[in-house]
Design a binder for these strands. Structure first.
Lengths: 157, 157
DNA sequence: TAGAACCTTGGAGTGCACTCCAAGCAAGCG
DNA sequence: CGCTTGCTTGGAGTGCACTCCAAGGTTCTA
C-alpha cells in the first residue's frame, strides 16, 4: 500500500527540472573519469545490478564499455540514458516499447520522426492515465467522506 | 503503446461523476429482476468471465447468488461492487489489498475506521502517482520539442 | 426435442518484469 | 599473499494478475 507501484529511479530531490541527456545536471564524476562499476550505477539509479545486466541483455542499453578484464564500466552518458529510461518507465511504458525506442536511437538520426511519434503517443497515454487517476480520486474522496461522516451506516462497500 | 496499462472497466463515457454504490447511476435492470449471467456481467464490466470467477475464488466478491442448478446470478449490488473494485484497480491498488478491503467489508461496520485509513493511504498513493506522471510529462515535452525542432542533431537519446 | 450457445470446476499455463543462483574470475587493502 | 568484496555468465525461479483448458451439465431458440 505504502509503496510506489513501480520502484525505478529514486527521485532526485524535488524539482520540476527536466533531467535529460545533455541537460545541466552534473554527474558524480567529471567527464573523462566517468567509469562507474555496476554497483555504483545500481546505487545511483535505484535499479539492482541484476536489472542493469538484464537491461543490457535485452537491448535497452547502448553498448556499455568494459574494463580490460571484461567488467562493465558505465559512463555519464549511460547514466543519462538510464535516467531517461527511468522516466519512460514511470510513464508506464512497457520494457518492450522502451527497447523499441532504444533500437530507434541505435538506428540513427533518420528515426527522429518515429521517435517523436512514440513519445507523443506516450504523452497521450500519460495524460489519459492522469485523468483516470483523477477520476478515482473523486470516488475515493466520496468514500472517505462517507466513512468519516457516518461511523455506522448500512452501505455495503 | 496504444493500450492502457490496466484494462479494467471500460470507462463509462466521460464525466467526473462519482460512480459508487448507492449512487444515482441506473442499472440495466430494475431491482427485483437483477439476476445477470456471468457473460452479461463480463460485458458490463469489461472483465472476462474467467476473471469474474477468479475474483470470487480469491475473496474479492461478496458471495454471489446462484440459480437452482448452481450457475451464478449477479445482482445490481454486485455490479456496484465491481464498479467500485474497478476504480480501486485503476488507482493501482494490488489485488491483495482489494481483497483485504473486501474482507473488512465482510467483517462489518466496526471496520469503518480501518477502511477509511486504507482508502486514505490509497488516495495519497494516487496523488503521488499523479505528481510522478506530471514529472514525466515535463521530460516527454522536452524531448518531443527537441525532435520536432531539430530533425538532425547529435543528441543520443 | 434438437442443437447451439452458455455455464461449471480445479488446476495448469501465460506474459511481464524482474530476481536469484552457482561457480568462478577480478580488485583493492594491509 | 591472503582476504574480503565485487563482478561475470546463462539459465532457472518468482510474484502478480490474469487466462485458458477439458469434460461435462444448463438454457434458450426453432
Amino acid at each position: 500500500m505504502e509503496s510506489a507501484p513501480v520502484p525505478v529511479l529514486e527521485t532526485v530531490p524535488a524539482a520540476p527540472v527536466d533531467v535529460c541527456a545533455s541537460g545541466p545536471r552534473p554527474h558524480p564524476r567529471p567527464s573523462g573519469q566517468d567509469r562507474y562499476t555496476i554497483s555504483e550505477v545500481a546505487e545511483y539509479t535505484g535499479l539492482t545490478a541484476h536489472t542493469l545486466r538484464w537491461y543490457e541483455r535485452i537491448g535497452l542499453m547502448p553498448h556499455v564499455d568494459r574494463s580490460h578484464t571484461g567488467q562493465r564500466r558505465f559512463s555519464n552518458r549511460d547514466l543519462d540514458w538510464l535516467t531517461f529510461v527511468g522516466k519512460l518507465r514511470l510513464t508506464g511504458m512497457s520494457v518492450a516499447d522502451m527497447v523499441r525506442y532504444a533500437e530507434l536511437v541505435r538506428e540513427g538520426d533518420h528515426t527522429f520522426e518515429e521517435r517523436r511519434q512514440l513519445l507523443e503517443s506516450t504523452r497521450r497515454d500519460v495524460l489519459a492515465r492522469i485523468a483516470e487517476l483523477q477520476g478515482t480520486l473523486a470516488v475515493l474522496d466520496y468514500k472517505i467522506e462517507f466513512y468519516a461522516g457516518a461511523p455506522a451506516a448500512p452501505e455495503r462497500s
